[in-house]
Design a protein around this nucleic acid. Sequence first.
DNA 1: GCAAGGTC
Length: 784
Amino acid sequence: MTTVVFTEKNKAAAQISNILAGGSARRTIVAGVPVYEFQRNGVPWKIMGLAGHIMGYDYPEEFNNWRDVDPALLLDTEPVKQITKAQFGNAILKLSQDADLLVLACDFDREGENIGFEAKSIAEKVSKSTVKRARFSSLSKSEIEKAFTDLVEPDENMAMSAEARQILDLKMGAAFTRFVTLSVRERARTKGVLSVGPCQTPTCGFVYERELAIRKFDSKDFWKIEGFFIGKGTDFAGAHRGGHIYEKEKADAIFSKIKGCKTALVSKKTVKEMKTNAPFPLNTNEFLKRSSKFLGVSPEKALEVAEQLYLSGFTSYPRTETNKYADDMDFKKILKGFTRGDYQDFALLLLSQSTITPRNGKKDGHDHPPIHPIKAGSRAEIEKAVKMPHAWDIYDLIVRHFIANLLPEAVFEKTRFELTVGDELFDSTGSIQKSAGWLAVYPFEKPKDKLLPDLEELDVIDVKKINNVKSQTMPPKKLTEAELLTLMDKHGIGTKATAPSHIETNKKRGYFETKGKTIAIMDTGFTLMDALHSSVPILVKPDIRARIESLIQEVEDGTKKFPQALEEGTALIKEMYSQLLKNRDVMVSQIAGTITDEAVAADKKNHVGTCPECGRMLRMVITDKGRFVGCTGYPQCKNTYPLPKAGALNVQRSRKCKKDGIAVIKVGNKYFWSVGIGPCFSCELEKECFPPEVIGPCPSCDGQMFLIATKDSRFLGCTKRCGHTQSVPKKGRLTVTDKVCEGCGWHFIRVKEQGKDAKEYCANRKCEAAAAARKDAIRKAREK
DNA sequence: GCAAGGTC
């Protein structure tokens, strides 16, 4: 007569056995998995924690080759469920063999029900015993006792709804990802995978929509009239009640009426007390948003740190939807740990109260309490236990948020003056914090006091200045990670545990990147969203997730059978797939183009510039037959330019062709070539673009000596072609320096031969100073 | 090599 219980995770197994056994549970290991054993009502009990899902769907082996399988075929193929965590499968088999009762005790939600059914399906291979369900919303003693006394039937509909989600998500993800990746690969050399999925794609969609709004934004001019006043010796500002005025004439008219006014009348004064409540207790989403906003820690990292803090016993379970504390939460017990250290003042204050009333939200996911500290830890203790960046910052945020939830509201005094200047009205507001309340422990959200002078109604004050300021409406700002999390939460994209991973997937794919706390879409992400949006709009929006969600909700409610939901869901995906297929060519050229452009721009050596015909990228194309400059828009854009047949080519990014050439290329060490124009030496603007490298005055006429370099020799010649020439060293790299010879006015030349020190000197054979220096050098060499 | 969902 053995009862075997499966929980969602080891931690829950340990806690539940502790409650049911009254502390007498014995921890053993079965097939490498911890199991808690004890006697209850004379019956042996064994409780094992799973590790979330221990099974998963995948396509059969023969569908693994992307090249050989038409992605559309995946939509007509049923993926297969397999055990993904073998040791758990084995442990379940061993435990179930001699069980008389199996109890599924995973979390009380859809996935929890499904995880329980995974264990059930494995256990039923070796056991025919009854399977029951224990349902509880928290791991409190009373709930657990009750749940295991009043066992219920497992909810197959609920479990199957999660099953439908898994299959539909995989079908859609696999088919679309393969289709997009392979199609684009025909035209662009892409290294990675271009993935599409019911959560990751709408997540990127939010970033895309914001980017569109920014790009489409049309800025408008407006004027605002500002007043600067002095009251009782204090300077303060006010704004004209007209606010943003979009007609210049209107603003000018008001301004010219009052610009000469020297005094203002305090025509009205209102003082109001304003109270600000502490934020709701931290559920996962709120925690991730605040970690990003206040600490600049990405959702992914924040969740990792919280997981470690939880495993080290410092904070509670980090994945929860609940933002209200249970009625029996023992705040004082936790606060007692904080009576020493950073938070002692607040802890002592709260402990001195007879009752503690927390600030509570309204969400109850029936899962875990809000994220809160379990145990006090110093910075050193936290950093020793959790060796990750920001471990202390995140613990500190959790503790401060927890204490803030228990402290009273903050009170402000808001003062507003209505000021009359001429017959125009201005407003000025200020606020003073009267009582800090929860803000005392929560430095992340401290509003600044804005002081106003102590004026009364009908006081007359000085006007210092009136300004009529021209301004412009600003485009929307880029999304922050915190805002993205809000949007995902609001539209049901991902869950408390997966939202960070969807953001991470998009970063990994090169769809967007984070710069500090804001998110910037990348070209690949933008064009992919653009392409998907134009052929299957629903895919880029939260609607796709919502459609699947409503289907599986019907399965859970029992109003639709599982096979029916699967069929309808598959039909929906097929419909989207066929729309995408119809627009394949446009999509491919858009995405492939962007990816090629990105690659070309990154390939500094061959990237030439922007195509004047189509705006895409120009690059050097080198084939067996020859070389030319071509456009990445090929074959739509057939713009090309010839290149010289021989010589190494180097794009000169600092040079610009004055005759509207696309770019200037250096050919070997010989001459320059302007793309679209031809060799620079045949251009009448050559001397303007490449002025001779003048060294100094010609010793025979009033011309200038300059460096002439030909294919196989170099020498100095006169700009007036007077016939005077002079040789220069044949070996080494020769440059004309800025240093000027005092004797003759020639620039020093610098000669650097490989493996030798560079020499700098005056090369003028007629220069006496140079001759003396040469003699001196020879004498010194002889002496040695 | 594809998704999203659990959890370590």
